[in-house]
């Protein structure tokens, strides 16, 4: 089975100059964990996802790639502080939040297994792009795969 057979051809997407604040709200309102980000020409730039929000709420020492603090049960934590972090980031463009590991994509003619592999590794949704133009043409989500298996 190819990705084209199950992909969503009119996916939710974000422009890379949208603010973190509006991306945050879109994610919350749509109740999804990932939204693909495109530039003005519709070229795929990366994924905005829950991890970008968690990264703001966690101390930097907890996401150093290696040697991070792996247990935060001793810290003090307040909702106000976390809200402050979100409002400080709100006016910034989301392109600042895209990380390098956001990039893996599939193509319309890729096998669905490749999409499953990427979903297993990186998160709920994987972007489908055009091979030549890198424009976003759709998304495959975990739910579409489960539906296809019905």
């Amino acid at each position: 089975m190819k990705v084209a057979e199950i992909m969503n051809r009119a996916p939710l997407s974000l422009r890379d100059d949208e603010t973190f604040g509006s991306a945050f709200e879109r994610l919350r309102d749509a109740q999804v964990t990932t939204i693909p980000v495109v530039d003005a020409d519709g070229v795929y730039e990366g994924i905005f996802d829950l991890k970008d929000i968690w990264r703001l709420l966690l101390p930097r020492a907890a996401h150093l790639n290696r040697n991070s603090i792996e247990d935060l049960s001793f810290v003090s934590s307040s909702l106000d502080r976390m809200k402050d972090e979100i409002s400080e980031a709100a006016p910034l463009p989301i392109r600042q939040f895209l990380t390098a590991d956001d990039l893996p994509v599939v193509y319309a003619d890729s096998p669905v297994q490749q999409a499953i592999l990427l979903i297993d590794k990186y998160g709920e949704t994987v972007a489908v792009v055009d091979r030549q133009t890198r424009k976003l043409v759709g998304t495959v989500s975990a739910w579409q795969i489960l539906d296809a298996l019905r």
Partner: peptide, 14 residues
């Protein structure tokens, strides 16, 4: 330093 620096980053950030 691998043991002390992460906690230091945490404390200075707070």
């Amino acid at each position: 330093v691998l043991l002390v620096v992460p906690v230091t980053l945490l404390i200075t950030e707070e």
